[in-house]
């Protein structure tokens, strides 16, 4: 039996209903963003780096994943970290996980995509933040 194509109005009503369904979770995520922006300061993030490349790359990925805000904030913090002598590996993984990982949006992701998808996507993002940062810096060193 052929499936009926909804009209634009019906599809719009359905999309608004979906927004209504996820609204409490969306508001919760936005509330968390405000809390993280206020209570997790750049100084706090700086203090976690120790100067060891391997350790700092790991820390960079985690801190990038829990940080929130516009992408340019990660460039500013990354630039400051570089000036303080933190390795480019760690700074790159921080910048990358800042935009590709999101601890606070995990509940929303889980509720819409399910547990398996959420775990696979976030684990891959975490792993690739480290791999891409190493590949980028090594390529840069070879080319220069």
């Amino acid at each position: 039996m052929k499936q009926e194509q909804p009209t634009f109005f019906k599809a719009l009503v359905s999309a608004i209903q979906m927004l209504y369904t996820i609204a409490p979770m969306l508001l919760a995520v936005i509330g968390m963003v405000g809390l993280f922006q206020t209570f997790i300061t750049p100084e706090m993030l700086h203090s976690l780096f120790k100067g060891s490349t391997l350790y700092d790359t790991f820390v960079g990925t985690i801190t990038g994943g829990i940080s929130v805000g516009q992408p340019f904030l990660s460039y500013i913090i990354g630039g400051e970290l570089l000036e303080e002598g933190i390795s480019l590996y760690a700074v790159t993984s921080f910048i990358l996980s800042f935009v590709s990982l999101g601890l606070i949006q995990l509940p929303l992701e889980y509720s819409l995509f399910g547990i398996r998808f959420t775990i696979v996507r976030n684990l891959l993002s975490f792993l690739f933040a480290i791999l891409v940062s190493w590949a980028t810096v090594i390529t840069l060193e070879i080319l220069s």
Binding site: T21, I22, A23, P24, M25, L26, L27, A28, G31, M32, L35, F39, P107, S111, L112
Partner: peptide, 23 residues
């Protein structure tokens, strides 16, 4: 599924409001 999604969302929202009150 929608009801479960909304209930989970509401629980999460209540937790966040609780964190704000505590904070």
């Amino acid at each position: 599924g929608k009801k479960t999604q909304q209930r989970t969302g509401l629980i999460m929202l209540i937790i966040v409001i609780g964190i704000y009150i505590f904070s």
